[in-house]
Each structure stands twice: as structure tokens, then as C-alpha cells.
Simulated assay, not measured.
Amino acid sequence: MAQLQTAVSMIYPPRCTTCGDLVESDFGLCGPCWRETAFLGGAICDACGVPLTSGGKDGVFHCDTCMQDPPPWVQGRAAVIYRGNGRKLVLALKHGDRQELARPAGVWMANMVRNLVSKDTLVVPVPLHWSRLLRRRYNQSALLGAEVAKNLGVSFCPDALLRRVRTPSLEGLSHEARMVALEKAITPHPKRGHRLDGKPILLVDDVMTSGATLKACTNACFDAGSGPVRILTLARAVKEA
């Protein structure tokens, strides 16, 4: 088997997931792409994962937005900032049919919450409406969720939530307009929603901007009797300074 893998590597050498340059191992980033990818760490908001500079108490930080309007979930994390290579990775996974990107992304994401989740946690992806799923052929959040659950050694349910309404694109809408568009759009699945009952939930999505979709999903989990809920995304959008 080792000889076969060596032969395959010689014919198809590992390539950087972002730029395609040669790298040492599969699903890795080359040195320049690694340096240009803004991985999150250090001082971050404990609720939404946005990077911070100061203001923490006992090692726990919260951004102004989450202090003024606390989200319904207890903690939130993201692996990278949604800009530069982080944005390229999200768009390639979401619209470029680069499904293999879920594998390294799942490792990065799992590492962000490894010390936060319990072994009875259920990983649940943000659902796609059936019409978008039919067109795209896969739910990128479900791909990420499966990899996160595998790396954490916890359970995964790809369809615990159901998007009943095909909501319009939320890009460019205010937070209030997003919440109105998502009202009653996401519910527990009538056949699989029972798996949410009594379970701590890790909600997984590709990117968080305003958090409106994740709030709708969190409330749907509460409707099914689950909690606490934590959120995890591949990328976190931040305001440019």
C-alpha cells in the first residue's frame, strides 16, 4: 500500500489547495498561501469569533455588537477571516465545485472548537433549500459539517434542519431585512428533527456575516428542544478598518 501511495504521489504530486503549486502533503497550503491566509486566533469575540484587540475579562472577549445584542448561541468560532485567500477558499467550495476543500477546512474548523464541545454534541449544518441543492448538487455546509464531526469524533446529522422557504440572496441586506427574510424559513426536519431534542448542537456554515441565518437555525434548534448551541464557520466576515 505504501508503495502504491508513493507511485500515485509521483504521478499526481500534492498541490496547494489555493494556487496549485507543489506542496509536501495532500490538501495543504504552500508557504506563500499559508502566510496570506488570515487564520483566526488570539483575542476573538467568544460569541461570534470576530478578531479583537482588547477588552477581555478573565481571557473571555466580546465585541461591541455581541455585548449590545447577545446572540442566541453560547459561543461562536471561525477558522479564517473572509478576505484574501479565506474568501477564495469559501467561494471555491461554494461555487467552484471544489468539494475536496472541505477536508482541510474541516481540520482547521475542528481545531477551533476542540476544547469547547462535549462528546454528546451533534453537528448540524445550515440547510439549503431543495431547489438550490438540486442546482448545486451539494450543500457546502454539510460537507464541512461531516469533516468537522469526523475530526471531533462526534455525531453528525446532515438534515436535522429544513429550509422550507427559498429565501432571496441576503447579500447587501441589512441585519433587520435578513431576519425578516428568514422568518419561519428554517425549521426542524419533520422526520429527523427529533435528533435535536436534548442535544448540545454545533451549527456549521461556510461563512458568517451578520449572523442572521445562524440565528434562525439556532432558534429552530431551540424549537426542537436542543441546547446549548454553538456555531462554527469556515470564515468570518469583518469590517474593513
Rank of each mutant, 00 (worst) to 15 (best):
A2P: 08
Q3T: 15
A7F: 15
A7K: 12
A7N: 11
S9K: 14
I11H: 01
I11F: 11
Y12L: 15
P13E: 06
P13Y: 04
D21V: 15
V23F: 01
V23D: 00
E24L: 12
S25Q: 15
G28I: 05
G28L: 10
G28W: 12
C30S: 00
C30I: 02
P32S: 02
P32Q: 03
C33E: 04
C33G: 01
W34F: 12
E36H: 12
E36W: 03
T37F: 00
L40M: 04
I44V: 15
I44P: 00
C45H: 06
V50K: 09
V50N: 00
L52H: 01
S54W: 12
S54F: 09
D58C: 10
G59K: 03
G59A: 05
V60D: 04
D64M: 10
T65D: 15
C66R: 00
M67G: 08
Q68Y: 12
D69P: 02
D69R: 14
P70H: 13
P71R: 07
W73G: 05
W73L: 10
W73M: 07
G76N: 03
Y82A: 04
Y82M: 01
R83T: 01
G86Y: 01
G86V: 00
R87W: 06
V90Q: 03
V90W: 03
V90A: 02
A92H: 09
K94W: 09
H95C: 09
H95I: 06
G96C: 11
D97Q: 15
R98S: 11
Q99N: 09
L101F: 04
P104Q: 10
A105Y: 02
G106R: 04
W108A: 05
N111K: 14
N115T: 14
L116D: 14
V117L: 09
V117E: 02
K119D: 13
L122Q: 07
V124A: 08
P125M: 00
V126P: 06
P127L: 03
P127E: 01
W130E: 14
L134W: 15
L134V: 11
L134E: 13
R135M: 11
R137P: 05
Y138F: 14
Y138V: 09
L144H: 02
L144K: 09
L144G: 02
E147F: 02
A149G: 04
K150T: 11
N151E: 15
G153Q: 08
S155A: 15
F156P: 04
P158F: 08
A160I: 06
A160V: 05
L162Q: 10
R163E: 01
R164V: 14
V165M: 08
R166E: 14
T167H: 01
T167R: 02
P168C: 09
S169D: 12
G172F: 05
L173N: 06
S174G: 15
A181S: 11
L182C: 04
I186C: 03
P188G: 05
P188F: 10
P190L: 02
P190C: 04
K191S: 14
R192I: 11
D197V: 12
D197S: 13
K199F: 10
L203A: 11
V204T: 07
D205G: 08
D205H: 06
D206F: 00
T209W: 07
S210R: 06
A212T: 01
L214F: 03
T218M: 08
N219F: 12
A220V: 07
C221Q: 06
C221H: 05
D223W: 13
A224H: 08
G225A: 08
G227V: 09
R230W: 11
T233D: 05
L234V: 04
A235I: 00
V238Q: 05
A241Q: 10
